[in-house]
Amino acid sequence: MKIMHCPLNGPRNISEFAPGGEVTRMPEPSLTSDEAWADYIWMHNNHAGVVTEWWCHVPTSYWFIAERNTITDEIIRTYPASQLYTERMNFEQNAENK
């Protein structure tokens, strides 16, 4: 079994984790065209090499960040999301609701 290091729970079998996709920045919905929003939802970098992704330790519902290599299947490092996101993300209220 492959082992992943959870920043909260330590080394665990990879079957305890669920991938949450690449770390991307959500565009501000009220300022984004339908096309750009479609791209944000559907398009993927699908990069061959080192990627930065969201992962979740399912039994504890703990979300964190992992860097892994999609060619060699190596997990390079894992760390709490707070290292990337130092402040709360705020989005303008959707223009239509204003």
Binding site: M1, K2, I14, S15, A18, P19, N46, A48, V51, T70, I71, T72, D73
Partner: peptide, 13 residues
């Protein structure tokens, strides 16, 4: 496989 890879490795799990 549960996550993306550019690899044709197999896994016992």
């Amino acid at each position: 496989d549960p996550y993306e890879l550019y690899s044709t490795r197999s896994s016992l799990d």
